[in-house]
Design a protein around this nucleic acid. Structure first.
Lengths: 221, 221, 221, 221
DNA sequence: CATGAATGAGTATTCATTCAT
DNA sequence: GATGAATGAATACTCATTCAT
């Protein structure tokens, strides 16, 4: 109606070209939206990111976001729940020693934490969330932590690691890994695979007991 | 009827009773203000904290804040610069081995990081700052990191620690320590002194080389 | 996950089951839609009622409404024009006295005013309408008012009622009746028929002249 | 800071010149604000009135409104509570007959209902209010109604009016009076005093019993 | 020094309306 | 005819900041 309708968005670039024809368009668009939001929140901060910013990056209009989520808070909540879900999904080999379990778990953990979702979980944190949602995410984080604590206890029991205070040691280990998003850049010289190995090597050494074939033990011999 | 003009401040409790007569009132008030701001930023988040919140906690009026700082951004900047200053101030024993230097440095680092200022540096981060100020703080953080890298290099040179990539190892070590504000509560069963020891023990073990008298080595023998 | 794409409408209940096969489906659907809109506007208020609300009640989708009306404003306009039309349609016995005409007219008026359309006319009012449409409805209302004024004049002329200022008395009479939608509930103990009688009795007494068989006259005798 | 600060408001005309120096400025400004809001709500409708509209009329900036009220809803609530308060404040002569009490009560009622506050109470209604506030106003309105019902009962008891159903008659009477805001204009040929007399005459006639010295009776004689 | 009052700039959210399918 | 998706326009509300006193 109005003549001012100048900048009609080009449909082709909308949704960053990530959407194909098909049935699950709705779910796929949600995913693209979530990842874009996660990345932007991490880069600029939650409050510095306006919904317009996100819409602009997707080449859609701001109100369109509301077809997929009912509030900015809900977007963040879901980003963080996806992140937590990914981490909790790590299949755990129930035959392995505690030490082996931890290594495997951390492998996945590192991969997830440097991903958009995990990075947003760490860098944005839960403070911007509504109290109700904050509790939800905190529960999820607690679950992850309990997972590690149990592996530590298992390791202590099966002697694959030496006795320690699992609560505090878990915190140290998570700290070293959670800090990754603050400095690791995938486009540097270090790929995620290598990063994970080095990170795991570092935190595993923090566990007192030596591990077969490990430097520390070899030297000891 | 409205809350707006209710609650006239009681003068006596203003400034949290921390201010005595004397010459340095201005500087002292600034300090109280900074610490209060730092604590509140960490607890609620920078953007969730309004200047009214801070003023309320100090039992002063919002515009009064502007006698001491010229913007919210400046308050955060100064909080973080104080934190960085405290960490950089750590006197380094130039006679000590790299390993010894690192231990001493981390001791101070842990104390500072669980303090209001250090905690705010970590938890609030630099994203809320104006780009110009952000760079300033980032430079400071970089300086701290360089300090550790140099100690690592010194340790490698003097063989008190084994060869490693100082850049990446420094990141891991800082990660484990920087995560402290997210979980450590001084009112729990662990005092700062003990926390520091445990934390240092953990990260030092991450350095490959064994340290004389260390558990790992003793067991190996 | 989101509510957005949930709840696919069941076709069977669409249009509240009021639509049968046949030719006049379009007109009938319009009527159902109008009545639903009228009722909802009255209950929640025009601006509190979204087109989604109306569509939901009809178990159809929001854009479907636009097949029947070209705007929300037009819906309200038509509701009110229907109401006005109903009131103006009252056949007037040109043989009757003014008093008798008024009684008959009010009988119909009460029935219409407690109906969805009349209630919406009164409770929603013309303020939400576009200025152009507002004038239309106001003209209609004016016509209704003129109808009553003429009957009053006729009554004064034929002495069935006593001289009075028809303009102002008409306002009082309409006031008493227009207020009905604000309090009358058909499901209470009073049916519309009785309501009308009582209401008419009240407002007719406001006319000074006594009416044959009326209390006032009986006393006078 | 920005050069775009063109239209700085002239302070003199702000608050419509209604505010003098003195102590109660806050309370006075609130009153001016309330009255302005009430008038505008009645003229344009609650939802058609933006906070900017109100601010513009007062020659103040939109956020300034929030110094005096915490939401648009609260403004409306208070307008309506003022109106109800005024009506309930009518001193009732406990010596008078029911009929006399009613006349006196209605005199005040008419004055209040054509005032900005009363008019807003009637024309805006309670639908725009939050449910919680809606209940508050409805309780107030109910109190006013009960007041009239009691006077009616008293009148029936003291025979100053004839037996009737107080509930329903009260509704009719209020209807005739509540409709006033929809048509009465103070700047027409009828002042409030006369309006009140005529209105009261009309509704009192609706009460069956004749009143000593009343036209109806005199003529009957 | 301190502050009540005022405000510009900014943002999440809502909703009537359009359009491609 | 019907609808899911998309959007322009509009608005209440927040808050850092300024200024007169």
């Amino acid at each position: 109606m109005s003549e001012t309708n100048a900048g009609r968005r080009e449909r082709k670039r909308a949704w960053q070209g990530a959407i194909q024809d098909g049935d699950d368009q709705f779910a796929m668009k949600r995913q693209v939206l979530l990842r874009t939001a996660a990345r932007t929140f991490s880069q600029r901060g939650f409050h510095q990111t306006t919904l317009s910013d996100i819409a602009d990056e997707l080449h859609i209009a701001k109100p369109t976001l509301y077809h997929y989520f009912k509030s900015k808070d809900e977007i963040l909540l879901e980003v963080q729940q996806v992140a937590i879900g990914q981490m909790l999904d790590a299949a755990i080999d129930s035959e392995a020693t505690g030490r082996e379990q931890i290594r495997a778990f951390f492998h996945r953990y590192v991969e997830m934490i440097v991903d958009d979702f995990g990075t947003c979980l760490i860098m944005t944190g839960v403070l911007p969330l509504l109290p109700k949602n904050r509790s939800l995410v905190r529960q999820g984080s607690k679950s992850i932590e309990m997972l590690l604590r149990e592996m530590l206890l298992r390791g202590i029991a099966d002697k694959s690691i030496e006795p320690c205070d699992p609560k505090i040691v878990a915190k140290f280990m998570f700290g070293a890994l959670n800090w990754l998003p603050y400095w690791y850049r995938a486009d540097g010289g270090l790929d995620v695979e290598n990063l994970a190995e080095r990170a795991i090597e570092f935190v595993m050494r923090g566990l007192t007991a030596s591990e077969p074939g490990t430097t520390a033990q070899r030297r000891a011999t």
